[in-house]
Write a protein that binds this DNA or RNA. Structure first.
Length: 200
DNA sequence: TCGTCGATCTACT
DNA sequence: GTAGATCGACGAG
């Protein structure tokens, strides 16, 4: 059921981003399993993508995780507050990454509500990358951890979306990236209420 | 070493 | 609609 290592080693980040829609993402943290299926992703295409941290082959203590072999997590802090969860893909030395922007929760919803300090369940609980990470208990402690581990993994449970159900558009919050900000690297499930931004 | 700004979310006005 | 939280990377000096 877990996606195999091979799944993450391909060179087509956009294609993998799209195929991740409907896959189930789980974490097991402090003995509690939480998760759901992915409904929104964004691709970051390595050293030629101005929106990516690894643009221009930039390797720092933070970004070195992206240069490792695919099939691991890349977690970093944004705006000093929010942890963001990415999946690293491609082979070692090729810094592709996929940002998980939204999931549709299915397991451990009560635990997520506690983590999010949200006594009454709302659809914003896992809408947006910062929210997803917080709800699933993801933080920088799991940076560079393998997706074959028992802490953090992705499963295929046979849920698939057709092209008609999937929308493709430009990425969110990357206007600083010039023309690369318009690349169609954002994928989401049309009409799903957990998708973070413009939806229909 | 300092100042700026970011793959954001929430709580206010 | 918009301010505030507040860490890491970067470029200027």
């Amino acid at each position: 059921m877990k996606l195999t290592q091979d799944y993450y080693l391909g060179n087509d980040v956009a294609g993998i981003s799209k195929s991740l829609l409907g896959k189930y993402l789980f974490t097991c943290i402090d003995g509690v399993t939480t998760g759901g299926y992915i409904v929104e992703t964004e691709a970051y295409n390595g050293i030629i993508d101005k929106a990516s941290h690894s643009y221009g082959n930039r390797i720092t203590p933070r970004t070195k995780t992206m240069f490792m072999q695919g099939g691991i997590a890349y977690v970093y802090l944004c705006y000093g507050i929010h942890e963001m969860f990415n999946i690293v893909t491609a082979v070692e030395g090729v810094p592709h990454a996929i940002l998980i922007r939204a999931v549709n929760p299915t397991n451990g919803i009560e635990a997520m509500q506690v983590r999010r300090n949200m006594p009454v369940l709302k659809h914003t609980i896992t809408a947006g990358p910062g929210s997803v990470a917080k709800a699933l208990g993801i933080n920088r402690n799991v940076n560079a951890i393998s997706l074959q581990s028992d802490t953090l993994w992705i499963e295929d449970r046979g849920l698939n979306f057709t092209d008609e159900q999937i929308a493709i558009g430009p990425r969110i919050g990357v206007s600083y990236a010039g023309e690369d900000a318009f690349l169609p690297y954002r994928f989401y499930v049309k009409g799903n209420k957990y998708v973070s931004k413009p939806n229909k």
